[in-house]
Amino acid sequence: MTEAVITPEEIIKRGKIVFKKTKNMLDKTLSYCPGCGHGVAHRLVMEVIEEMGITEDTIGVAPVGCSVLAYEFMNIDMQQAAHGRAPAVATGIKRVLPEKYVFTYQGDGDLAAIGTAETIHACNRGENIVIIFINNGIYGMTGGQMAPTTLQGMKSSTSPYGRVVETMGYPLKITEMVAMLPGVAYATRQAVHEAKYVRKAKRAIRKAFENQKDKKGTSIVEIVSNCNSGWKMTPVDSNKWLEENMLAYFPLGDIKK
C-alpha cells in the first residue's frame, strides 16, 4: 500500500501548530544572502505588529542599504526613504497621522553615518516612533565598505588593511549616544543569531511598539547582526565572529528602559 500524500492543511488539522509564518510577511524569496540576520529581524517586526493587532494602522519606512527592498517582503503600507533620512520621513508621517504606528528599519551606514543628524534630532524631539537599527559593522549593499560601526582593525573594501582609528575614527556607539537624550524612552541592543537571542529581541521590539502605543517617545532597538558575505566568512563562522568580536564592543542588553 502506498502512503497517501498529505496536504499542508491536513498536517495543520492533525497536529498542534508550533510555528506559523506571520501574515505580515509575503510569500516571496528574501533578497538577502543565505545566513544573513535581516530575514529574522524582518519576521520579528512583522510578528509583533500582527500580534498587537496593529497591521492596518502601521506604516513602515525602508532605508537605503541591504534592506532598501524591505517593502517587497512586508505586507503593510510602506515608504522608501532617501539614504539616512528615514527618521525625518517617519517624523513627517507621525505628525500628520499621530494615531498610526510608524517605524523605520535602518542599517548602520544609513542611521549612524549619513543619517546621523536625522537620527539624533528625531530622538531629541522624542518622536513617538520605533527605530529598528541593524548593526552589522559594514556596508553590505554596496559591497562591503567600512561603516561607522566597523570595528577597530576590521577589514573592509575601504579599510583593506583594517580600520585604523587614528585616521578613520572609532566605531560609533550611536545607541548609547541617543540613549542620553530625554526624548528617548527606550534604547536597547539585541541580536538574532541564536534562538535565545531571537526571543529576547522579539520582546524588545514588542516593548518598543508598546511604548509607541503609550505615547512614550522614541524607542530604538539595535540588532547586532552578521554580514557573512561582507565579512567574507561562512554563515556559521560569521556568527561565531559576531559573538566574540561584535558583542565585545557592542554589549547586548537595555541601555535605557
Binding site: Q79, R85, I93
Partner: peptide, 8 residues
C-alpha cells in the same frame, strides 16, 4: 524628507 513622509 518630512514633507516626503507626510505627502506620502
Amino acid at each position: 524628507n518630512m514633507v516626503y513622509g507626510a505627502a506620502a
